[in-house]
Design a protein around this nucleic acid. Structure first.
Lengths: 161, 161
DNA sequence: GCGCATTCAATGCACAAGCAATTAATGCGA
DNA sequence: TCGCATTAATTGCTTGTGCATTGAATGCGC
């Protein structure tokens, strides 16, 4: 690989780091102060909610801890504690797995479903506003309902009259 | 914004999270066990090294703490402690700023320059191998000198005979 | 039926990161 | 010159994360 390729990869990595820091920072702040949730917490709730909605029978949306950990890029121990936090808040419930009594099934409670539904618009709004900032300025994204991004310049082009 | 747009943004965000987790995980492991450096530590050393090399006079590569913090996406307190760690290892030196005695200049030591130079190939190799994995499999990237990515399938296409 | 390696989740421990409070130095205005 | 707001960096405290370990349960071989 030549120097140009290397520079390109490094630049790409820095851009990735910058975008990750920016978006996850705003997301953390917004989700935390508006809904009392962290980014990882929301992510876990979302996986559980998705599984539930893609499943006909209610009460089927169960997940093993390790399975969730893989999806949200956390270690098994981190997820164990995260689940404990969510359980303390009443957003999820642990259920013994009878087939394999080492395993634990995690599922959303009604309260958990509600909190996730409440937080989703904020989550989407932050992503729309900050993930592709250039699109926002070009008028390709909505005015971010649910948040008021402070970095939107006063004269920036928006959709509408 | 319609559902399709929203889904796209969410998918893009998840892809970003996945790539960030993957690459920074491997990078952390490799840099740590081969050179005793964390990702953030390396990033700071790199900024200092770049500033030095782009500067004619030796000894001019000084940085304010806050300036470094912005570049590596850390809070000033985090960077303050990180600098302290690097200083304890003898990789950087704090220098009082005489013009403004609140400020602190941070600069690389010779040992710091050496460690950064040693670690750079590992850093670049990990990025090349993991940042754009599909390019690696397509033979557009080198066989990642310095690391042996375990997730390269035995039969995957590589450059060479 | 009895070990024994394996697997799943929880816990002890160490550490890095952020927020808030603190200390030190600057510069501006009365 | 004397406050006083402002800025830079450090420190106290809390929290989330990963690694390694532990404890429980499984199933495979004999």
């Amino acid at each position: 690989m030549n120097d140009t390729d290397t520079d390109f990869v490094v630049m790409a990595w820095r851009a990735l780091l910058a975008r990750h820091a920016e978006v996850s920072g705003v997301l953390e702040r917004e989700l935390s102060e508006r809904h009392g949730l962290g980014v990882s917490e929301f992510e876990v709730l979302e996986r559980l909610a998705e599984a539930r909605s893609s499943c006909q029978e209610p009460g089927e949306a169960k997940f093993r801890v390790q399975g969730l950990a893989d999806q949200v890029h956390l270690s098994q121990s981190a997820l164990s504690r995260l689940i404990a936090r969510l359980e303390r808040e009443g957003l999820v419930a642990r259920a013994l797995c009878e087939a394999d009594r080492r395993g634990v099934f995690v599922q959303l409670t009604e309260e958990g479903r509600r909190r996730h539904a409440e937080a989703t618009p904020t989550h989407r709004a932050v992503l729309s506003a900050h993930l592709f900032p250039h699109l926002v300025d070009a008028g390709c994204a909505p005015p971010a309902e649910g948040t008021a991004p402070e970095n939107a310049a006063p004269g920036s082009v928006r959709r509408g009259p």
